[in-house]
Amino acid sequence: MSRIGKRPVAIPSGVTADISGNTLSVKGPKGTLAMGMSDLIDYKVEDGAISIMPANDSKAARAFWGMQRTLVSNLVEGVTAGFTKTLDIKGVGYRAAAQGRKLKLQLGYSHDVDLDVPEGLEVKTPDQTTVEISGIDKQAVGQFAAEIRRWRKPEPYKGKGIAYRGEYIFRKEGKKK
């Protein structure tokens, strides 16, 4: 039994959920998100909440149960509050600048790295060493943050690179004479 899946997802005021065909769509103050529904799970919108239950007693349905509830919860949270990931850039000469729908990174390569910001996301650079990615889709925010981080992962000796805010970088001791 999924302990996460048992709890229904509460629908706050100002948010509407609708099931049409094989799609669950949630509309709120920040926008609209939709998700394809699995055949193994039953979704019901009732009493100001979305309840998720396995359609049958198969192992696959029980395995999907908790994950599907979390995905529905992410839809509701995304249209009400949204999601934000913050990246910190550490290193001499490493910097970032948001320019319209592009993000320009200087990461010690012979060239600047120019990334196009995907639709539905907003990128801000409060200072040269901080990048804030925000949007209503949790998966899209996390994916773009991972793509930025991939250009210079934090290294263990000096800690240089792009790290998530609050991420612990395991540090190693350098060579000894």
Score class of each variant (00 low, 15 high):
Val123Ala: 02
Gln99Cys: 11
Gly108Phe: 06
Gly142Leu: 03
Val113Met: 07
Leu121Ile: 12
Lys153Ala: 12
Arg152Thr: 05
Asp88Glu: 06
Asp114Ala: 13
Lys153Leu: 12
Gln143Asn: 12
Ala96Arg: 04
Ala98Thr: 13
Ala146Gln: 15
Val131Ile: 13
Leu115Lys: 12
Gly93Lys: 08
Trp151Asp: 07
Ile89Thr: 04
Thr86Gln: 02
Ile148Ala: 08
Gln143His: 12
Leu107Tyr: 02
Gln106Ser: 05
Thr86Arg: 02
Asp88Ser: 05
Ile89Lys: 00
Glu132Phe: 09
Leu103Ala: 03
Leu121Arg: 06
Ala96Pro: 03
Gly100Pro: 06
Gln143Tyr: 12
Glu147Asn: 14
Val92His: 08
Lys102Thr: 13
Leu105Val: 02
Leu107Arg: 00
Val113Asp: 03
Arg152Pro: 04
Glu122Gln: 12
Ala96Phe: 06
Leu121Val: 11
Ala98His: 09
Ser134Pro: 04
Lys124Ala: 13
Pro126Gly: 04
Ser134Val: 04
Leu121Trp: 09
Ala96Lys: 01
Val92Cys: 02
Val123Ile: 11
Gly108Pro: 02
Gly108Gln: 05
Glu122Phe: 11
Ala145Ser: 10
Tyr94Ser: 03
Ile133Leu: 03
Ala146Tyr: 14
Pro154Ala: 02
Gln106Phe: 05
Pro118Cys: 04
Asp88Met: 07
Val113Ile: 14
Thr130Met: 00
Thr125Gly: 02
Ala96Val: 03
Gly120Pro: 08
Val123Asp: 02
Gly108Arg: 02
Ile133Pro: 03
Asp114Pro: 06
Lys104Met: 07
Gln99Asn: 13
Phe144Ile: 10
Lys102Tyr: 14
Val92Asn: 09
Thr125Gln: 05
Thr86Leu: 01
Gly108Val: 10
Asp127Ile: 09
Ile136Arg: 00
Val131Thr: 07
Arg150Asp: 14
Asp116Val: 15
Thr129Val: 06
Ile136Asn: 01
Val113Gln: 05
Lys102Pro: 10
Glu122Leu: 10
Val131Leu: 04
Asp137Cys: 06
Gly100Arg: 05
Asp116Leu: 15
Ala97Met: 10
Ile133Phe: 11
Leu87Met: 04
Ile136His: 00
Gly142Phe: 00
Gln128Gly: 10
Asp88His: 08
Ile148Asp: 06
Arg150Phe: 15
Asp88Tyr: 06
Ala146Phe: 15
Asp127Lys: 07
Ala97Gln: 12
Val131Phe: 01
Gly135Met: 03
Arg95Ala: 01
Gly120Met: 06
Pro154His: 02
Asp112Asn: 11
Ser134Gln: 08
Ser110Glu: 15
Gly120Asp: 10
Ala97Asp: 09
Leu121Gln: 08
Pro154Ser: 02
Arg95Gly: 02
Pro118Asn: 06
Val131Pro: 00
Lys104Gln: 08
Ser110Arg: 15
Gln139Ile: 14
Gly135His: 01
Val117Asp: 01
Thr130Glu: 03
Val117Thr: 07
